[in-house]
Design a binder for these strands. Sequence first.
DNA 1: ATATTTTTTTAGACTAATCTAAATTTTTAT
DNA 2: ATAAAAATTTAGATTAGTCTAAAAAAATAT
Lengths: 218, 218
Amino acid sequence: MLSYTEENYLKAIYHLSDSGTKAVLTSEIAETMNTKAASVTDMIKKLSNKNLIAYEKYYGVKITKQGRHEALMVVRKHRLWETFLVQKLQFSWDEVHDVAEQLEHIQSSLLIEKLDEFLEFPTVDPHGHPIPDKSGKIVEVRQIPLSECSGKKKIIVRSVKHGSPSFLQYLSKIGVYIGASVSILDKVEFDGSLEIMIDSKKKVFISREAAQNLLVTE
Amino acid sequence: MLSYTEENYLKAIYHLSDSGTKAVLTSEIAETMNTKAASVTDMIKKLSNKNLIAYEKYYGVKITKQGRHEALMVVRKHRLWETFLVQKLQFSWDEVHDVAEQLEHIQSSLLIEKLDEFLEFPTVDPHGHPIPDKSGKIVEVRQIPLSECSGKKKIIVRSVKHGSPSFLQYLSKIGVYIGASVSILDKVEFDGSLEIMIDSKKKVFISREAAQNLLVTE
DNA sequence: ATATTTTTTTAGACTAATCTAAATTTTTAT
DNA sequence: ATAAAAATTTAGATTAGTCTAAAAAAATAT
Ligand SMILES: [Mn+2]
Ligand SMILES: [Mn+2]
Ligand SMILES: [Mn+2]
Ligand SMILES: [Mn+2]
């Protein structure tokens, strides 16, 4: 069984590797885990000895099949708990991350299966991120940043790329939510900002950074 | 803030001290925590330095006002989570303890207040144990072991003294639950066992040990 | 192609929580 | 009252996870 810390490292490596596809550098892990490179090297060796990652000295790590599965189970728990907090306890979507960061480490398969059932088997979390099923299957729907859309097509907001509390609060403030329907009214040449229409009733300007962080389907 | 381990020790000391009234010996703590006396001595010093317990060398510890409050907050979380597991996730009362043992350490006052509200401010947990409120107030209703009851009065089962899974499963099997109404039909002189009537419809014999572990009001 | 800079690893140290074995204190028995 | 037994504390190690500083390797710049 993995320790609390091992789970956190493995999950970070999973996310940094684009869901397990590419190699991850020691410095990247240190950055996201808020630790020093020396500490990362130690942990890397531990995870490597457990065959959760493949480690080549000086060239970073790649997550193994087994490691990806373990990471997905942590992601599953994180996203199910976030869904619970929002849907059942009335948390707002910007309040759930830190609590889920703790809850994801509770060890009980019975608990997580019952929670999944209680929530009626949700497929995405409050930020639009897919929830892996109990076998680790995850349905990644192809999404593009709003900043790369053009024309007058109907666009649906599907998820946020990075869900920092301040960004999420900003979205709530301007009326953007997962599932919202938007259309692009104008693209400002000067700074890449967009004028958008939300749900056919509200016009707002959003910055290029904001548009890059909103993932949508056309 | 207390560590996971400090919280567990403090809660154990609280329970061993009869809700904070009497002194607790090193060996008792070691016994319930499944650790060695030497480890307990180390932890005792830590908790004493934080003024959560008063420690007198070789004579055990007494919980302080502050320590009692901290312990009650852990007990509150434990019992609210148990209530959630049974009432919302359909756990049975013999399955909840180990999971609650983990969940009680989640740090988020928002979470626990919202959970309390979601459960509609329960006053007792699935084992009949009182749930402290957010200020640490706990309503201890006077209860006596069924083994000390006599006569034909109406008796209500209020809680279990020790809720081991096997005892709880046994109770479910014979139809005893928190709130059940029982009456004593006969007391066997030989071994102290009782013949009881449950909910005016089911007669069973229970051992003296079982009767001593069932707390009731007359 | 070499030298400089950056990244990574190693070495050695620290804290929290645990242990075993030895020393000390208290309790119990004679 | 003294000796034996039991409980407790201390001393010294160990493991997980972290750090700083030094050494080694890789990447970059001239
Ligand atoms: Mn976490
Ligand atoms: Mn999320
Ligand atoms: Mn616990
Ligand atoms: Mn309980």
